[in-house]
Every structure is written in structure tokens, then in C-alpha cells.
Design a protein around this nucleic acid. Sequence first.
DNA 1: ATTTATACGCACCAAAAGGAGAGTGACCCC
DNA 2: GGGGTCACTCTCCTTTTGGTGCGTATAAAT
Lengths: 139, 139
Amino acid sequence: MTDNPYEASPERRAERLAETAPTECDVRVERLVTELIGRVADKWTMIILEVLEEHKELRFTELARKVEGISQKMLTQTLRHMERDGMVTRTIHPVIPPRVDYRLTPLGLSLGAAFCGVWIWAEKNLTEVEAARTAFDAR
Amino acid sequence: MTDNPYEASPERRAERLAETAPTECDVRVERLVTELIGRVADKWTMIILEVLEEHKELRFTELARKVEGISQKMLTQTLRHMERDGMVTRTIHPVIPPRVDYRLTPLGLSLGAAFCGVWIWAEKNLTEVEAARTAFDAR
DNA sequence: ATTTATACGCACCAAAAGGAGAGTGACCCC
DNA sequence: GGGGTCACTCTCCTTTTGGTGCGTATAAAT
């Protein structure tokens, strides 16, 4: 149970690898991981990931419709970031009017899988969180 | 493989439950889940979760030191949100100078576990993401 | 008497995120 | 020749986020 990776913090995991106190290198890696998570774990990225998981390939306006609530600007921006990070491929068809298709890379798919735990958690614990909130607010 | 919950989107999961097209209720739940994730999946929450997983119980300044980079304001704010959502308990010892202990609830622990997949993903795919970035920037 | 320590709350300000809407280029349809 | 389509980009504006520093209560230590 102590060896279940799902119950270990990154420090713990790093320690198991190094079997020493955290070195300078560990700290650097951890900082990078934290930064990566900060970039990757935003609302729109998660939702776009989900939508693209469901429909293998979508063009810009299709995505805009499916994501619901996202502005054009945010959609473009998020897709660019995802492309830069290697999560999606962007294929431009040189036709008129323009046509651009987005689809997940294997890396993007794997991130979607990693986030799935969080979605499931949210679904499962939604009512508990709401109960905690009303209890908290009742004071 | 198709039945692996880690590879299904929330729509898919909802569909399996309902066996129909998404109803009004499904949409409402999904919206709530999305909102919950938006609140819960921010940088500081994730990091505080990790730190509190490692050290069972910490007081305010201990947390401030361990989290590194967080401002007092953000620490207070994030902890309050986490408390409201039922992730942490806040026990005030009426002594002087004041002493307040924070520890994770079972709910908080379970969220930590849910996020662990993302941490592991980030650790594992860090170099691939960096490679994708430099490749992208090289144009 | 002054300093120190703790866990904040509050007020002010700077920076960043994000929305709305207009513009663009190239072609097809009427 | 005017309008429509698509995938944007650009500009302006508002909202949100987050940092800094000050204030506070209280007792022990110096």
C-alpha cells in the first residue's frame, strides 16, 4: 500500500529513485514538473482534450461549437499551446475557404488518460463537495 | 479496452449510464463537474495537496515554508477554498501565539490520489514535451 | 519597555487573463 | 458586385489574479 504510486508524493517518488535526500537535480525536475502541470492543467486544455478524445478529428469551428463557452481567442490560444507541447497536430488543408483539422497525438491521448482520474473523482465526489460547501457556508 | 474508464470521456461515461442521448440532467452534472475541476485543478491546490500528503499535519507557517513561492495571501485563500470544499480540516488551538493545524480529509486524500496520475504523467513525459516545444519553436 | 512570534485580514496596486468585435484574404454563389 | 464561408489575427477593454505591506491581539522573552 505504501508502494502504490497513487499514494506517494513526487518527493517520495524522487527519494525512492535516489535513495538520498533530494539533490539539486531532483529539485530542478520537480520544478519543471510543477510548471508543466500549471500549464497543462487549465480548464480549457482539459475540456478540449476531452472533446478531441471523443471525436477523433475536428476542425476549428466544430471545436468552437462543441466546447461551449470558449471564446475564439481562447480556443486559438489553447490549441496553439497544446500544439507546441505536442498534444495535438494541426493540419492545414490549402483549400478555400480554409480548413484546419485538429487531432490528438499519442502524447495528448496519454494526458487525457492521466486526467481521467480527476474527472472520475469529480463525478463521484460532486455531491460530497457540495455538501461540504453548504455546511461551510452555514456559519 | 473500450471499457477501460481511463480511456472514456465523461460524455461517454454518462451515455453508458443513461443509454440515451445526453439528457438535461447529464448536461447539468457535467457543467458542475467542469466547474469543480476548474476550481480544484489550480497550481497551488495541487501543490498544497502534495505537501499535506507527505506531512500529515502542518501549521500555517510550516506550509508557507514548504510550498515555496506562495504568498501568504494565496496560501490563506487556497486553504480556505480547500476547507470549504471539504479537502482540509482547520483546527485552531487557542494558545498564544496562535497555532492552526491543517490536515487532509479523506476527500482531500482521494483528490490527491486522483491527481497522482497527472504528476506521474508529467514526470514521465517531461522530456517529450520539452522536445516538442523546441521543435515547435524552431520554426 | 520593547521586541518577537503567529496567523491572519485589509487595502492598494500591477500584471495577466480573457471577452467583444472588427478586419482579412481568397474564392464561390447569386 | 455584393454577400457568405473559414480560420484566424489584432485591438481595445474589463475582469480576475496575485503581490506587498501594514495592522492586530496577546503573552513570553529580553
